[in-house]
Every structure is written in structure tokens, then in C-alpha cells.
Simulated assay, not measured.
Amino acid sequence: MCRSCFNPSVQVTVDHKIEIKENDVPQLKFGEVLIHPRATGICGSDIHLWKHGQIGELKVLGNLVLGHEASGDIIDVAEDVTNVKIGDKVAIEPQIPCNTCFLCRQGDYNLCQDVKFIGVYPNSGSMQRYLVHDARYVFKLPENMTYTQGALVEPLSVAYHGVERADLKLGHGVMIAGAGPIGLATLLLVNAAGCAPIVITDLSEGRLKFAKELVPNVIAHKIDVKLTPQETGIQIRKLFGPKEDDAPSRVLECTGVESSVVTCSYTVRRSGILMIIGVGKEVFNNFPFMQLSFAEIDVKFSNRYHDSWPTIINMISSGLLQVDKLITHRFPLERADEAIELAGDPRKGSIKVIVEDRNGTL
């Protein structure tokens, strides 16, 4: 097997530059597979690592190959691997937990404190021609699924985990805050779950228009920044009906922005659930404690996902989730720096930017 082959990779540096550099082809160990990533989606966390050099305690301390929303081809397997074989098309679950701590043992491996996550320093991500990964966290794709659909399993899993934890009710109204990639993925899932009515909010008319194209029956509402969170909450509630009990019992916050979380606190019905899926800053200075307390509103959070790849693959393969419209831009691996810059500029109107690699073989 050739180990001197060219392995172009997209790296962010400690001084916030994006570079396309050659990497070594990694060596296989027991339990691992060698993958040629064919499609990688650009995530907001990739942009954050590039521009800010960290996400909370996760810091870029050296050159880092980006990418974690990925699918590709198996091109080699360790001798003990039996779940996939050379030539299989797979989607990659990017987290590799320790599988020994109490969180892993109880099934909450997404909360493992010793997790290795590709595309987060020091673990190389999928924006390279050749990637080694734990065979337990790759999942074979059906013939009717594309590489880009396989890459979308990751952001859809983020939404799916939040939706699961929100304990949605069939035929009940739901509000989604934020029409970015995760908000739109959440929209697809709550629509598939039979929720009605569905309201989605955002500051951007363009993104709200996109949401309507994705799910025509959704009620798209532009946030008026001149209103207080209380006033906005009342305004959104009226979209569900005139009575107090018409207000949504489930509100899914997909931005992580403090003002949006506060608005959602005044939107959700008493005895409801406020599910925060978005990732925000470390500390909020304004949190309506008594509003939530008096109304016995359960505030819940989600962190990544677990056990979602087979389910999301099945939902896409069966046609229950129509996800192709989420892809707005595609770039070859050799122009991935342009792709990241586009995704990082909100004025450009991208939803999901995909980096593709149609070249390369070992």
C-alpha cells in the first residue's frame, strides 16, 4: 500500500489562517479503517475555530485539519474489522468516546469527557484525502444515498438529538428559533414528526424564505429587534392562536444567542419545554429565572448526539427527509479555502457548503 501518496488537507493555523497543505497518509491500527472522504460539510464550529481559535475550552494549539460532517469510501481496513469492507460507501460519526466511563456505559457516550472528536485539536478532521477512523463509528450508506446526503447525517443528528430530548407531541405546535443549518434540519425533523403548526423565526428574510421553500406549511416570522423579548414572545404566541393554551408547549432554540434564548423563555407555554440546541457563549448575563420558575418550564440542553446515524440514514434513504435543498454551494477540495471563507460570510447567503473530493486513490 502506497504511503507516500499525496494527501492534500485543509488546515487552520494558530494565527487564524487557512492553508491547503500536504499531510502524511495515516497508518492503520487495530479496529480502524482508512477512508477517502468524498464530501464534507462546513459547520459553524469550523468557522469559529478558524476565526477565534477556540470554542470554549477547545483551543487550536497547532495546525488543525478541519471537518467533521463527512462521508466517503472505505479504502483499507484493519485485519480485525468486520462491520465494513473495502469499497463500502460510509457516513462518519466524528466522535470516538472512551467506551469505559460511566457515561459511555449508560449510553450517553456523547457526554464522555475523554471523547476524541475529529476536526477538533489535536484530532485531524475530514477535509483531507485520507482519514483513519474507528471502525465502530462508520456506517454503511444504502445505494440510493449520495455522499453529500451522507455528510448531512451529522448536522441532522445534532437536530435529532435535540428533538428527541424535547419529547415532541404528535399534532402539537412547535416554535423553532433560528433558520440556520441546524434550525432548518430541526424544521425537517419536526415536520416529519407530525407537529403542527410549526413556526420558525429569524432576523433574515432570505433564510425565512428558504425555510418556506423547504417546508411550505411552516409559518415564517421575522424577529423585530425593536421589540423586547416579552413583546416578541407575545407576538409569536399569537401565531399559534388567540388563547393561552394555544401557545407552543415545545420551543426549540437553535441559535445559542442570548437574546433569542430569553425571547424563547417568554414564548413557551407554562409547563412546557424550552430545548436549547444552539451553542452560545460561556455565561449569559440575562436569564429570566423567575419567568421560567413560576411557569415550571423545563429548560433542557443537548450536546452533539448518540446512536443517531442508523436512524437518520434510514429517514433519508426512505424519503422521509428530503435534504438535498440544504446544499447551496459545492467546492472541490483544492478550493476548500474559498468554501470556508464563503461559509464564514453571512452576507453571502449560504446554508450548507460542501467540500468534495473526486480525485485520489491509493
Rank of each mutant, 00 (worst) to 15 (best):
Cys2Trp: 08
Arg3Cys: 06
Cys5Met: 08
Phe6Ser: 13
Thr13Glu: 07
Ile18Asn: 14
Glu22Phe: 09
Pro26Cys: 03
Leu28Pro: 01
Ile35Phe: 04
Thr40Ser: 08
Gln54Val: 02
Ile55Gln: 14
Ile55Cys: 13
Glu57Arg: 10
Gly62Ile: 11
Leu64Ile: 08
Leu66Gly: 07
Ala70Ser: 13
Val84Ile: 08
Glu93Val: 02
Pro94Thr: 05
Tyr109Trp: 09
Val115Lys: 04
Met127Asn: 05
Arg129Asn: 14
Val132Glu: 02
His133Gly: 05
Phe139Thr: 03
Lys140Leu: 05
Thr146Val: 08
Gly150Val: 00
Pro155Cys: 12
Ala159Cys: 05
Leu168Trp: 12
Gly173Val: 01
Ala196Asp: 11
Leu203Met: 11
Ser204Met: 10
Lys209Val: 09
Ala211Cys: 10
Lys212Pro: 00
Pro216Arg: 10
Ile223Leu: 14
Thr232Lys: 04
Gly233Asn: 01
Ala247Arg: 03
Glu258Cys: 12
Ser259Leu: 15
Val262Arg: 02
Tyr266Arg: 01
Gly272Arg: 01
Gly272Pro: 06
Ile277Gln: 11
Ile277Thr: 11
Ala295Lys: 06
Val299Gly: 01
Asn303Ile: 13
Pro310Gly: 14
Ile316Glu: 03
Leu320His: 08
Arg330Asn: 15
Leu333Lys: 06
Arg335Ile: 02
Glu338Tyr: 13
Gly349Gln: 02
Leu362Met: 15
